[in-house]
Design a binder for these strands. Structure first.
Length: 513
RNA sequence: GCGGGUGUAGCUUAAUGGUAAAGCUCCAGCCUUCCAAGCUGGCCACGAGGGUUCGAUUCCCUUCACCCGCUCCA
């Protein structure tokens, strides 16, 4: 069965999960709003995460519960934060476009050759003094390409490894008009490198002043590092321990795509786990296993999940010195049969605390008074999950096409994630079914999100509940009035059972973990 | 940012240089004892801006959004 994202987007809109932001104004690229059921689903996922991290964190390798505390830091922090974190400097990738082929290249991924004798050659009547190639191009491919361009010369670097070639950005005075792009047929088609600012900025204060420029956080993590010392000084935590945070983050994605998967405003669930350097490897493995289990627990099927270790060259700037990064990936409809990132577990080493210590002049190390007053800067293991992406994964995983039911489809949410746990349906709108239904509804809503739906025939009401993934429907009919039983209709099987009216609450308690 | 495609009601579709049509949904009422049933009535649309024209949803331009591909993705 292949799922079309169009159908998922349509369902999300039709049933109040996710709307395009600023819909009545024609939308805004990269922004989405969560409707009544979308926020319910998101809150359920967020709460499950918070519970699994802060309220009831898992047992560590030694069998005792690990220690994690919560945090909610500001979205806007002192801009120095992002200088220290490396985001201001390293978060803007210079890009180069080719006017001929319409290709775009990251300037720092381009390498190029210059003739050994320093003399240019003529191609299509134009002088060419440099030839650009994508990083990773093999020597054979380079030779082949030069042959195609009918260039017969000795080049700097051709006989050596590709890594010896000069990086494009290292050439201050490169003459672009004499440079042949990686896929171009003539020189002079490349644009100068352009900076892409990947952080959104703002200007706190009523007067717009360049000196007051600040950034909307591109990740929640830095707010945790900034509060590392505050937490240490106020919470009596001891190494190893974690700080967890859920919140919005903002990135100027070059191309927002795939519904809410890559948006410019999104929500993260991040936990920074601080530990002694020598324990980092053990905790890294521990958290990778824990995080995968979390996604299984909220209902994503094993077959749609995979763990993937980052290659060395795709590691983020902060993860380069550590044990690397492993992603938990989900098989989204738009990546299938491939997978897309849902969560990344990164070993950040002591990079962040070291940087912030240097930029702020504050001591951010740890004095271990239990183990001989040893002093060290903790290493950090970071499970960073996309809450927004998690919601999309839950919806995609739950989407079931079923021609045998009126709605033609249903959402197979795990009962704990379902926005509505149960619907109370009087079989008819007649006066004798309604009061009993209302009474049951008023009773259940104290503990569960339930809906009372009176209007229209029963089939339509079941269909609507199928579409929003409500796991159970309780129907009140004439028999209810006689023997105090109701029909319970189970979403996935559409099977009906009769249970006692007073057992309904226990039934839900047992079914919804 | 590039190339291609698509924009008519909540959804699916229609027609038209001159009052924009229908089915489903939705709402109200009736009827209904278990899966979008039936009857009656009702609400709701030409993505936005500009141009051509007596008149534009239709033709032209621009723009915005979405989809696909490229690119990017700490």
């Amino acid at each position: 069965m292949t799922i079309d994202m169009k159908d998922i987007v349509a369902l999300c809109k039709r049933r109040g999960f996710i709307f395009q932001a600023s819909d009545i104004y024609g939308g805004l690229n990269g922004f989405w709003d969560f409707g009544p059921l979308g926020i319910a689903l998101k809150n359920n996922l967020r709460d499950a995460w918070w519970r699994s991290m802060v309220i009831a964190p898992p047992l560590g390798p030694d069998g005792s519960p690990v220690e994690i505390v919560g945090l909610d830091s500001a979205i806007i922090q002192n801009p120095k934060t992002w200088e220290a974190s490396g985001h201001v400097g390293g978060f803007t990738d210079p890009m180069v476009d080719c006017k001929e082929t319409k290709q775009r290249y990251r300037a720092d991924h381009l390498l190029f050759l210059t003739p050994l004798d320093g003399k240019s050659v003529t191609i299509k009547g134009k002088q060419a003094s440099a030839f650009a190639f994508m990083q990773g191009t093999s020597n054979e491919e380079i030779k082949e390409r030069l042959k195609k361009l009918r260039v017969n010369k000795e080049f700097v670097g051709t006989s050596a490894d590709i890594s010896d070639l000069l990086a494009f950005t290292s050439l201050e005075n490169v003459n672009l008009s004499e440079t042949v792009g990686p896929d171009a047929s003539e020189p002079g088609t490349l644009t100068p490198p352009r900076q892409f600012n990947l952080m959104l900025d703002t200007y706190p204060g009523v007067v717009r002043d360049e000196a007051s420029k600040a950034y909307l956080r591109p990740e929640t993590a830095q707010g945790i590092f900034l509060n590392y010392k505050n937490v240490l000084d106020s919470m009596r935590v001891r190494m190893p321990f974690g700080i967890a945070q859920v919140g919005k983050a903002f990135r100027n994605e070059v191309t927002p795509r795939n519904f809410i998967y890559r948006s410019r405003e999104f929500e993260q669930m991040e936990m920074e786990w601080f530990c002694p350097p020598e324990e980092a490897a053990q905790w890294f493995d521990f958290w990778v296993a824990q995080r995968k289990q979390f996604w299984l627990d909220v209902g994503l099927p094993e077959s749609m999940l995979q763990l993937r270790k980052h290659d060395q060259d795709e590691l983020a700037h902060y993860a380069k010195e550590g044990l690397g990064t492993i992603d938990v990936e989900f098989q989204f409809p738009f990546t299938a049969p491939g997978f897309g990132e849902l969560e990344g577990i990164a070993h950040r080493g002591d990079f962040d605390l070291r940087q912030h210590s240097e930029f702020s002049g504050q001591k951010l190390d740890y004095l271990d008074q239990i183990n001989g007053n040893r002093r060290y800067t903790p290493h950090v293991i970071e499970p960073a999950a996309g809450l927004t992406r998690g919601v999309l994964a839950l919806i995609c995983a739950a989407y079931r096409i079923d021609p045998n039911r009126p709605a033609g489809l249903y959402l197979d949410f795990h009962p704990s994630m379902a926005p509505v746990k149960a619907a109370i349906l009087p079989l008819t709108a007649k006066e004798d079914h309604v009061p009993t239904a209302q009474k049951l509804y008023m009773d259940l809503r104290k503990e569960y999100v339930v809906e009372l739906d009176i209007k229209q025939n029963i089939g339509k009401r079941y269909a609507r509940q199928d579409e929003i993934g409500t796991p159970f429907c309780f129907t009140i009919d004439n028999d209810t009035l006689q023997d105090q039983t109701v029909t319970v209709r189970e979403r996935n099987s559409m099977k009906q059972d009769r249970i006692a009216l007073h057992k309904v609450k226990d039934y839900l308690k047992q079914k919804i973990r």
